[in-house]
C-alpha cells in the first residue's frame, strides 16, 4: 500500500490541459467516465496496459461515490435503506501535464466517519472479507493516491499516474 500524503493540486503549469466534468451520480455515467479518461490517457501517450489501469482506478472511485456518498442512512453503504438520487452530483477534474495525469473525483456526500478506509491489503484479505477490492485497486494501479474525507463535506479522491510509471 502506498503512502498517503497531501497532493498539491494548486501548482499548475501553463502548458497543463485542464478538464472538468460535473455529472449526476448514476450508474450510467461509469462507462462515459472510463471512456473519457481513457481518451485523455491515450492522447498523452500512455500504453494500453497503463490506460486500463487508469480507466479502472477512475471507475472504482466513481463507483464508490455511486455506492456510498449519498446514502441517507450512513456512509458505510453496507445496508443502505434509502438513497436520495436528486441530491447526488460529483465532479471529475483531469489535469494532463507533460509527465503525468492527475485525476480528482469529488462529491458532496456524507464523507467517511472515523479512520480512513483503505480497502484490503492484499487479495487474500479480499477473499476472506469479500469487499474492499476497489480501493485496493486504486492504490495498486496508480502512482500516488490521496483521499480526503472531512465528515459531512464529501470525499475527494486524487490520483496521479506518471508517464513511464513502473507501477
Amino acid at each position: 500500500m502506498k503512502a498517503v500524503g497531501r497532493m498539491d493540486s494548486k501548482i499548475e503549469n501553463e502548458e497543463d490541459i485542464l478538464m472538468e466534468i460535473q455529472c449526476s451520480v448514476r450508474g450510467e455515467i461509469l462507462p462515459i467516465m472510463r471512456n473519457f479518461v481513457a481518451s485523455v490517457a491515450q492522447k498523452m501517450g500512455f500504453s494500453r496496459d497503463e490506460i486500463s489501469k487508469i480507466e479502472m482506478s477512475v471507475d472504482e472511485a466513481c463507483s464508490n461515490v455511486l455506492r456510498h456518498a449519498y446514502f441517507i442512512n450512513g456512509a458505510s453503504g453496507q445496508t443502505p435503506k434509502h438513497q436520495d438520487p436528486q441530491k447526488g452530483h460529483m465532479k471529475i477534474c483531469v489535469r494532463a501535464a507533460s509527465d503525468h495525469l492527475q485525476i480528482t473525483i469529488c462529491d458532496k456526500g456524507l464523507g467517511i466517519k472515523g479512520k480512513p478506509y483503505k480497502g484490503v491489503e492484499n487479495i487474500d484479505e479480499f477473499l476472506n472479507k469479500c469487499h474492499g477490492l476497489g480501493t485496493y485497486i486504486i492504490h495498486k494501479f496508480m502512482d500516488k493516491v490521496v483521499i480526503e474525507y472531512p465528515e459531512g463535506k464529501g470525499t475527494t479522491v486524487s490520483m496521479i499516474k506518471y508517464l513511464h510509471s513502473q507501477t
Binding site: L30, M56, D59, F126, C130, H131, L133, G134
Partner: peptide, 13 residues
C-alpha cells in the same frame, strides 16, 4: 469489454 471490482467480486462469490 470491461470488468470492475464489483464484477470480480460477483464472480468470486
Amino acid at each position: 469489454n470491461y470488468i470492475s471490482s464489483a464484477g470480480i467480486g460477483a464472480l468470486m462469490a
